[in-house]
Design a protein around this nucleic acid. Structure first.
Lengths: 115, 115
DNA sequence: ATCCTATATTGACAACCATCGATATGAAGT
DNA sequence: ACTTCATATCGATGGTTGTCAATATAGGAT
């Protein structure tokens, strides 16, 4: 069960962002959970690799080489990103591929809108 | 010395975001530091209070009442937000007021652009 | 069935941080 | 100077997490 399934974000189109009224404690915790996933340099670099134009989905092994981290550490970060709803995970034979899922990024941009 | 003075963000207009090529380790750490400041429900609620339309700058005491947290805890959070460059701090007599500083929010929105 | 290869999980350790009570600083009034 | 009020800092504590080595799982090939 992914985080996005367990804790769906509020629809920002009609209600709340930082710039449009105080957040409820539930909203604040859900957004904080998402920002926490982004608040790590290794995960940001993995995301930037996956989001770079021209690069399609990448395997865990490729991302391990690029990051210079150990394979368990990369697997751990990809799991956190996937459970947060920021990545999609696809198994093809023995290799596992990940791909950026843009929806939540768009929602977070709305949250950071200050006017 | 605030974080934004010590570690200026790269100019995103011509260079790097998550969607435009891999991040350097320096960029990844600076963005991760900023997201870490946002990755706390209490700080998000303080920000949403400060950003709510109609609300001007608010004092530490007012924010302490609204948040339900202790005064030292609120002071701690406001310090982190201010040192990150997300808030401005102004002392007026005995009371200290804070106000949202929109620049870094705009930069983070750019970082989260995935296309 | 056995082996190899790719990924996931476990266990452990160190570092960081949110929170509070207690106390210090600092500014203004008497 | 002294008191009072608003905010900041200190010290301690409990919880979270990034990282790795070691091991487990799982899929394909022989």
């Amino acid at each position: 069960m992914t985080l996005s399934q367990a804790l769906p974000l509020a629809d920002l189109s009609d209600c709340c962002s930082l710039g449009a009224g105080p957040l409820t404690s539930g909203e604040a915790e859900r957004y904080a959970t998402l920002f926490k996933v982004l608040a790590d340099p290794a995960r940001l670099r993995l995301l930037s690799q996956l989001a770079a134009e021209g690069c399609g989905p990448a395997s865990v092994g490729e991302l391990t080489e690029m990051s210079g981290l150990s394979q368990p550490t990369v697997s751990h970060h990809l799991k956190r990103l996937t459970e947060a709803g920021l990545l999609d995970k696809v198994r093809v034979g023995r290799t596992v591929t990940h791909q950026v899922r843009p929806e939540l990024f768009a929602e977070l941009r709305t949250v950071l809108q200050m006017d």
